[in-house]
Simulated assay, not measured.
Amino acid sequence: MIGYVTIGVSDMAKAKAFYSELLADLDAKVLLDMGRIAFIGKSMGSPMLAVCEPFNKEPNNPGNGNMVAIHPGSKEAVDSHYHKAIELGATCDGEPGQRIPNQFYGAYVKDPDGNKLAFFHFG
Rank of each mutant, 00 (worst) to 15 (best):
I37C: 05
A50V: 02
G65L: 10
P101R: 00
S46G: 01
L26M: 15
I100G: 00
V78I: 11
D33G: 11
G97K: 12
T6Q: 01
L23P: 03
P59N: 07
Y82W: 12
F119I: 14
L31K: 12
V30M: 04
K110N: 14
T91I: 15
C52K: 02
F55L: 12
M12V: 06
N61D: 05
A13G: 00
L117W: 10
M48N: 10
T91P: 02
S10N: 11
A24M: 06
E21I: 11
G89H: 04
H121M: 03
F104W: 13
A17C: 04
L32Y: 10
G35R: 04
H81D: 05
A28D: 01
V109G: 09
G94E: 09
N61S: 08
I7C: 04
L26S: 05
A38M: 05
I2K: 02
F39I: 04
I70T: 02
A17I: 02
D25M: 01
T6V: 06
E21T: 15
K14A: 15
N66F: 10
G97Q: 07
K42R: 15
I86M: 15
K57P: 03
E53W: 01
A77W: 00
R99T: 08
I2A: 02
C92A: 15
H71K: 07
V5T: 14
H71C: 08
T6M: 05
V68Q: 06
D33L: 11
K16N: 12
G89C: 07
T6P: 03
K110A: 13
E87T: 15
D27L: 01
Y105I: 13
M34C: 07
I37Y: 01
Y108M: 13
Q103H: 10
T91Q: 11
P101D: 09
E95F: 09
G45H: 07
S74I: 11
L88C: 12
I2W: 00
D79P: 14
A107E: 08
A90T: 11
S43E: 13
A17H: 09
Q103F: 12
Y4W: 12
F122L: 14
Y19V: 04
A24E: 11
G97E: 03
D27P: 01
G94L: 10
